[in-house]
Design a protein around this nucleic acid. Structure first.
Lengths: 200, 200
DNA sequence: TTTTATAACTTGACAGTGTCAACATAGCAT
DNA sequence: ATGCTATGTTGACACTGTCAAGTTATAAAA
């Protein structure tokens, strides 16, 4: 009775699934994630997962959402540090973005990948979270333009879109194995900041 | 001796497979491609494909390689037009890149995706082709810096990496469904060009 | 021309996948 | 105690990529 009751109802299975799935994809890639194996590792039958996620894609979406939360927490940490200059915050944002993408390759892939964005899923809250992240970035761009930290010769929205594209593109090119030399990331961060600072 | 043109039951199956597979992925996405169905549609057994490609990934790599060839041909067309100014060529390159990515979503995804770049496959020639493409872009950046078409305040290699990241990131964000408004692409192209032109 | 070697192709099989229907149980609220 | 619901299980289905073993068509060699 003791062992049976303790092993039947898992209690926090949903959270455990997200955590274990994240572990798997970060060490072996998104494609290596199997619903059946995931249940096996946790010690639960293959169908149990479907009481917590309608399908595999929704599990992946949950991982992505927790990824956005992590990134939001990271940025809040240094954006609230009063001792940092605006320029330092900009540099930290750029470097931090690329580091986050590198340290959570698979999660980052999910956050901005077609698996989540091209299909109609239960991703309403995820899409809102993602939009919040971009909206916060747009506000930062505006603020840095106001404080003359970066060039204000361009429309804020477009500059935000273009510069975020740069961050995303570099993260992808690195993560997907096209930019292989990791010591470059520091230099490339500097280049991005420099490009944003140039005026005309 | 010319082996590939020699006709058997099917003539040039290898080429047909690439063409049909491209059709499938461009209309239904890379994930929708099934080796078995592909053979079925062409009228050949499931195992026939493996006499032309060691595995599915190598078929995808072949599609990617033909994608690089297409892109190379497109750029050559307008880069050789003497009537165009350097500034026009730059604009055409940026707009053309984003349009190419949009018109060949799935092929573009393969060209720069982890499927090809993260595994060790028969991709030596593919990787060389890809490297040639980037090398040509780097030379263009140098040339445009020499002709004062764009800013020369940054190291050429780094500027090439950063600006290519911008192109790639924007293409990905658009293709993966995060940037949904297609009328933006024209404006965003202008923004990229403008950013490259600014001097300090 | 006949033989032979080889490239192209087929069938059968295996291990794996996501997901659903049907059933079973645990634990809580009534 | 009774019933409800969340949570779990097993069996099954229709897929998937890929390989081993066998077959045939065609080009080269005899």
């Amino acid at each position: 009775m003791n062992n049976k009751s303790s092993s039947y109802h898992h209690g926090d299975l949903r959270q455990k699934l997200i955590e274990q799935a994240t572990l798997v994809i970060e060490s072996n890639g998104v494609d290596a994630l199997s619903m059946r194996k995931l249940g096996e590792v946790i010690g639960v039958s293959r169908s149990a997962l479907y009481h917590h996620f309608d399908n595999k894609q929704n599990l992946l979406a949950a991982i992505a959402e927790s990824g956005f939360a992590t990134w939001q927490a990271i940025t809040q940490t240094f954006l609230n540090e009063d001792s940092l200059s605006e320029h330092d915050k900009l540099t930290k944002y750029v470097k931090g973005y690329l580091e986050f993408a590198r340290q959570h390759k698979a999660t980052y892939e999910l956050m901005f990948g077609n698996i989540i964005w091209q299909n109609e899923l239960d991703t309403e809250s995820l899409k809102n979270t993602a939009y919040d992240t971009f909206h916060q970035y747009l506000n930062l761009i505006k603020h840095w333009q106001d404080t003359a930290t970066i060039s204000s010769s361009q429309n804020s929205l477009r500059l935000a879109q273009v510069s975020w594209s740069t961050l995303h593109g570099m993260a992808k090119l690195y993560n997907d194995g096209i930019y292989v030399n990791d010591t470059n990331l520091e230099e490339l961060s500097q280049s991005i900041v420099q490009l944003l600072q140039t005026k005309n």
